[in-house]
């Protein structure tokens, strides 16, 4: 019996590489020539092939345990599943949101009525006490005759001109607050628009008169940047008419909010802000909860 180990290392290496097709074409050709001539080399090649085959067929062994890793093994602290926490937080945020919305709706319905009724009542009672309704009635022919008021046509036609070719109209429109209900008194913008107003409708709201007064005073008092803004005779006439009108109306507290009040009022109440905040929070938390549920 011969030992493969007795062969030279060079021959063994060549034969082993030949089995695995790791020789170059040149080396392969040279070795094959040698194999044809050398019986020992053929024997050694057969032995090496058989050995490689035996090793290849060696049975695989099952691991004694599962080799999957845990967080402790890789040095990570065990992660707690945040899903229950997020679920609870989402529920709390949703309930809080519902409560705030409910409270807001309740307060709105309650105070909206009070806000509409109370000032109107107050205004009417004050006007009654002051006998203002008589004063606010339609001007008589005598008023016109005495020169307290100009003829309605004059006022209607000249007032826009006196206010300065539309620019002041726009100003009034911007400053005039929208009415909260149909019960509210007519607004001055309605009386200034061309073709619509009458002197009668003009005197319905004392506050509107005050507004006209302010606007006209501003129109008259402001320094106009353009030449055409300089008050003309016609404008002066309109201003004097408005001033005279103001004089005829008793000074009464305003039943409707003044423009300044509307401007100063905040656009979002704290309740609305809370609604938006809680709503957004609930949506974000719900998203995180869903993500956690899928992830963990």
């Amino acid at each position: 019996m011969r030992r493969l180990s007795d062969l030279s290392a060079r021959d063994l290496e060549q034969l082993s590489a030949y089995i695995d097709r790791e020789l170059t074409v040149k080396e392969t050709a040279r070795l094959e020539k040698r194999l044809q001539a050398d019986r020992t080399m053929r024997w050694a090649l057969a032995e090496l092939k058989a050995t490689a085959n035996v090793i290849e067929k060696l049975p695989r062994v099952q691991p004694p345990r599962n080799l999957t890793l845990t967080e402790e093994m890789i040095g990570l602290p065990k992660r707690r599943n945040p899903y229950p926490i997020f679920r609870l937080a989402t529920a709390i945020a949703a309930v809080a949101f519902a409560l705030v919305v409910g409270t807001d709706a309740f307060l709105l319905s309650r105070f909206a009525n009070a806000r509409m009724i109370a000032p109107a009542k107050e205004a009417f009672s004050i006007m009654e006490e002051a006998g203002g309704f008589e004063a606010l009635e339609a001007p008589s022919e005598a008023d016109y005759a005495q020169g307290i008021l100009d003829e309605p046509e004059t006022l209607v036609e000249e007032a826009p001109a006196a206010l300065g070719a539309g620019s002041h109209e726009d100003k009034i429109d911007e400053e005039t607050p929208p009415y909260e209900s149909e019960n509210a008194l007519p607004i001055i913008t309605g009386t200034i628009e061309e073709g619509q107003p009458t002197a009668t409708s003009l005197v319905v709201s004392p506050s509107d008169v005050g507004q006209i007064d302010e606007t006209v005073e501003r129109a008259a008092g402001e320094e106009e940047p353009c030449e055409e803004r300089i008050p003309t005779t016609e404008e002066a006439k309109g201003i004097s008419a408005a001033n005279e009108m103001t004089a005829t109306v008793p000074s009464l507290p305003s039943a409707t909010p003044t423009p300044e009040r509307w401007v100063a009022k905040p656009s979002l109440s704290p309740l609305r802000l809370a609604e938006i905040g809680l709503g957004s929070l609930a949506v974000i938390l719900a998203g995180l909860t869903l993500w956690c549920r899928r992830r963990f």
Partner: peptide, 10 residues
């Protein structure tokens, strides 16, 4: 590899 195969065979 060649030497390992030879030793295993022996």
């Amino acid at each position: 590899l060649a030497r390992a195969r030879a030793r295993v065979r022996d």
